[in-house]
Amino acid sequence: MQSILTLSGLSKNYGRVQALSDVSLSIPEGSVYGLLGPNGSGKTTLLSIILGVVRPAAGTFLWDGEQTNETSANVGALLEKPNFLPKTKVKAQLEMMAVLRGIPSTERAKRVEEVLQQTGIADAAHRPFRSLSLGMKQRLGIASVLLSNPPILVLDEPTNGLDPQGIIDIRNLILNLASQGRTIILASHMLDEIEKVCTHAAILKKGELIKTEEIRKDKKESAGVVLRLGVENRPADDITKKLENWAVCLDVKIKDGYAIASFTAEAGGASGVNRYLSERGLYLSEIHPHRASLESSFLKAVEEKS
C-alpha cells in the first residue's frame, strides 16, 4: 500500500519538556491509523506538527511524498478542540469555513446543510457556538472537517465529551467515511475506540513511538482461538509444558496463575484443546476464551518500555 504520510525523526520540545522524540512512521493510503497513548504521550503534538500549527525541533514529514512544513490541501482536521468564534452562529461559522475551503458560492448553502444533517446538529444551526454542549461542539468540529469532502481526515480525540450514543454515532461515521476509501488518522487514549475503528495503530508514550501494529492482520492471525486455561491445585507451568510441543499452539505464557495460549483453527477450539490435554493427564478446571486485544499489546508495550 502506498504511503500517504511519512514521518522521519520528528522531535519537539517545549523548553525542557520533550514532547516528541525521534518519531518515524509511515501511514498507508486508505488506512484508518490510530495513534494510541495516555495523556501527555505526544499524540496532539505529533498531529499539530503534521498539520503545520507547530514547528518541529527536528525531523521532516512528507504528505504524499512531498516534503513540507504545512498541512496538505487534501486534509480535513479536528485538532484537540473545535476552534470557532464563541458568539457566532453555527451555520455562519460553517459558511465561513466553506469560503475558506474554496467551496463555490452556489454549492455552499447545500453543503452546509448536508454536513449539519450528517453530524446531527441541524437543530442547532442558529445557535451561537458558546451555547452548545461539549458534544455538540465536537460534532460541529467534525461537520466543519467534512465540508469539502477531504480524502484525508485527521481527528484528535473526536469522541471527547460525547455521550455513549454520540460515541457510537461518531464511530459509525468514521467507519462509513473509511469505507469510502478515505485515509483517517485518529488519535485517542481509548484503546477500545482505536481497536474498533482502526486498521493500524501506533503506540506512543512520553513522546516516544513504542510500537506500530496492524490491527486487522493480527486479528486474522489469531482467528483460531486464544484461551485462558487453569487446572485446580496444579501450577500453570504443567499446562505450558504440555502445550509447548503441540504444533497447533502458536504461543503460550503464564499470567496471573493461568496459562494463556493461542491456537490455530486446527486445534478444534476449546473442546479440541480440552481433549488434547485430558488425553495427556491434565484435566482443566477452567477454560475461557481470552481476548487477545490491543489492550494487552498496549499494556505489554508500555510495561516493556517502563
Binding site: 503545520g52 486534509v75 464563541p86
Partner: peptide, 14 residues
C-alpha cells in the same frame, strides 16, 4: 485566543 488562526492553518492557510 479562540484558535481561529490555528484552525485557518489547519485548513491550509499559510
Amino acid at each position: 485566543i479562540n484558535g481561529i488562526w490555528r484552525q485557518y492553518i489547519i485548513e491550509g492557510v499559510s
